[in-house]
Nucleic acid binder design. Structure first.
Lengths: 318, 318
DNA sequence: CTGTTAGCGCGTTCAA
DNA sequence: TTGAACGCGCTAACAG
C-alpha cells in the first residue's frame, strides 16, 4: 500500500521505475482514483479555498472572483464558491461549512451592512475560522481581524468630483446607495468632500439600493422632484446605467442636459453609450492579491488600492 | 463517541435531552467542529457539487452559474466552481479533481470546440466521472452521454430572422463567432435558415471570436469592406455590443443606417442604448434545472428550452 | 437507550 | 528500497 501511495501521489522518494510501472498498471486496471477526502484526513490539510460573494451575477463580484480563481488555479487549489444572495446568515453558515471542510483559506468579497449584531456574529465566525488555522482575506470590508484589501473609495470619489468640477459641472446630484453600506457611504462621502474643496455641495443626495434598479428608481425620483441638477454621480456603474435608462425614458439628454458618472469601470459596461465616466478599480488584481494574502496567513495586513478616474462621453460638456 | 456523533450530526434517533445537553456543552467547551472530510469518508458520500464554466466574468456563464448555485443552496449542497479559462485540458483536470473529491454531481456549462481528439478525451473523463456514481448535466453541449440542457439556438435564431424580415430588413450581415463552436454555429445556421424561408440569404458571414472583442473586430472588418448591409446579427449579446461600439466609432447610426441584433438577453446589457434586439434565454432556470437533473441521476435526458425574441430599438426601422 | 467495535482510504512512521 | 502497523475523525452495525 505504501509503495502504491508513493508512486501515485506523494512526492516522496519513489521506488524503482519497474515497480512504478507495475503500480500504475494495476491502478489503471482497477480504475483507481485517489480519494481526496481520505488524503485530506490522513494529511490533515486540504487544497480547497473558499470564495464568498454576495451575488455572482453582479459583474463587480464576478470580476474579483475571476482574479481569485486565476490565482487559485496557478497554485493548484480547488475553489469552493458560495453566493450569499446578500444574506448575512447564509454567509456565516457558509464560512462555518468551509471550516468544517478544513478549507485552507477563504476570501470574502463585498462590504457588509453595519448592523451591529450581525457584524458581531460575523466577526465571531471569522475568529473561529482563523482559529482553525485557515487563512482569510476580506475585500472591501474593513474592521475585521483578517487581511484586508481595500479600494480607496473616498480618494477615488473625491478625485472624480475634482475632475468633474474642473470640466465645469456645478450642480451635483448623488445617487448614494444604502447608507449602511460602507462602500457606498465612503464613495458618497469622498465625492462630497471633493466638491467641498471647490466650495460646492451637492444639490441632493438620494439613497437607494446598490443595484441597477436602485439607480433607476433614484433617477426617476430626481426627475419627479424637478431638482435643479446638472450632473449625477451614482456610487456604482450598474446604478449609473440604470439611472441613464430612466433619464432617457424621461427625455433627458446625457450629457447634453445632465452629466452622469459611476464607479467601478465594469468591463461589460464599457460599451454603453454615451461612454460612462467612472472610477476604475483593479478588480481582478484585487481578487488575486486577496487569495495570496489569505494563503500566506500571518498578521492581519491592509492593502489599499488606488482607483483611477476615467473620463468618457457621459460627462463631456457641450 | 457514537452518542456524541448522534447528537451533533446524524439525524439518527437522539439520546435523552439531558445527555444531549451534556454533549453540546462539552463540544462547545472543546471548540469542536465536525470534520466534513472524515464524515464524507465514513459515509462515503459528500454534499459537494461542481460547476465548470469557461469564464465566470462572462455574464452568460455567471447567469447560469447563479441558477445552479441557487438550486444548490436550497438543497444544502456546497458548490465547487472552476473557471476553465477556455482550456480543455483544465476542464478535464477539474473534472478529475471533482471525481477525486467524490463530488455528488457536476454541471458543465458551455459548448466545447469540436476538436475530435479533445472531445474524445473529455468524453472519456465524463464516462469515468459517471462511472464513479456521480451525476452530471451539461448545458449547451450535446452529444455527451449525460443529461443535457439545451437552448433551441436554431429555432430562436430562425425566429429572430423572421421577425427582422417582417420589420423590413433585407440585407443581413452575420457576425458568426467561431465555426467550431456548436452554439455559435447553430445560431448562425438557424438565422440563415430563417432568412431562407423568405428567399433571402445573408450578404456576408464573418467568423470571429465569441467575445466582445470578436464582435468589435468583425464589425470593423465589415465597415472596411464597405459591404452593402442594412442589419447585423451577432450570435451573442457581448459581440453585438462590441460591434455597436465599432459602428459608433465609424460614424454609423444604429438603427438609422444599420440595425443590430444579438442573442442571450444578458441582464447587465439591458440598459445599453439603443436597446438591443435579442433572443432571450432563461439562463438562471437552465442552470437550476441542470443541477436538478445532475443530482437526480438516471438515464441521460435532454431538455430543450425555447428562446423568445425580444425586439428593441436597435432594429427599429426608421 | 447507550457504549463498543470495526472500518471508510489514505499517509506516515518504523523495521526489515 | 520496501512492507507492516497505526492513526486521521467519523459513522454504522452491533452488543449490552
Amino acid at each position: 500500500m505504501a509503495t502504491a501511495s508513493r508512486v501515485l501521489n506523494g512526492g516522496d522518494r519513489v521506488p524503482r521505475p519497474e515497480l512504478q510501472e507495475r503500480v500504475r498498471e494495476a491502478a489503471a486496471e482497477l480504475g483507481y482514483t485517489p480519494n481526496a477526502q481520505a488524503q485530506a484526513l490522513a494529511k490533515s490539510s486540504t487544497n480547497v479555498v473558499g470564495i464568498l460573494v454576495h451575488d455572482i451575477e453582479d459583474p463587480y463580484f464576478a470580476a474579483i472572483a475571476n482574479g481569485v480563481m486565476r490565482a487559485a488555479d496557478e497554485r493548484n487549489l480547488l475553489v469552493m464558491m458560495a453566493s450569499t444572495f446578500r444574506d448575512a446568515e447564509r454567509e456565516i453558515a457558509y464560512l462555518s461549512s468551509l471550516r468544517a471542510q478544513r478549507a485552507r483559506a477563504a476570501v470574502m468579497i463585498g462590504s457588509r451592512r453595519t448592523d451591529a449584531d450581525q457584524l458581531a456574529r460575523t466577526a465571531n465566525e471569522i475568529e473561529a475560522f482563523l482559529g482553525s488555522g485557515a487563512g482569510l482575506a476580506l475585500v472591501s470590508q474593513s474592521g475585521m481581524p483578517a487581511h484586508t484589501i481595500e479600494p480607496d473609495n473616498r480618494a477615488g470619489a473625491a478625485q472624480l468630483a475634482r475632475e468633474l468640477v474642473g470640466q465645469g459641472w456645478r450642480k451635483f446630484g448623488v445617487l448614494a446607495g444604502p447608507e449602511q453600506l460602507a462602500t457606498a457611504r465612503d464613495r458618497k462621502d469622498g465625492f462630497v468632500a471633493g466638491l467641498a474643496e471647490a466650495g460646492l455641495e451637492p444639490v441632493v443626495v438620494l439613497p437607494g439600493d446598490f443595484t441597477r434598479d436602485g439607480g433607476h428608481a433614484a433617477a426617476v425620483e430626481l426627475l419627479d422632484r424637478k431638482l435643479d441638477v446638472d450632473c449625477l454621480f451614482a456610487v456604482n456603474d450598474v446604478m449609473a446605467v440604470g439611472a441613464m435608462s430612466a433619464l432617457r425614458a424621461g427625455g433627458v439628454d446625457v450629457p447634453g442636459q445632465l452629466g452622469v458618472a459611476g464607479f467601478d469601470d465594469i468591463a461589460t459596461l464599457r460599451d454603453v453609450w454615451p461612454g460612462l465616466t467612472t472610477v476604475r478599480l483593479p478588480l481582478e488584481q484585487m481578487g488575486r492579491r486577496a487569495l495570496e494574502l489569505a494563503i500566506e496567513g500571518g498578521d492581519p495586513r491592509t492593502e489599499t488600492y488606488a482607483p483611477e478616474v476615467v473620463l468618457r462621453e457621459s460627462t463631456t460638456r457641450q
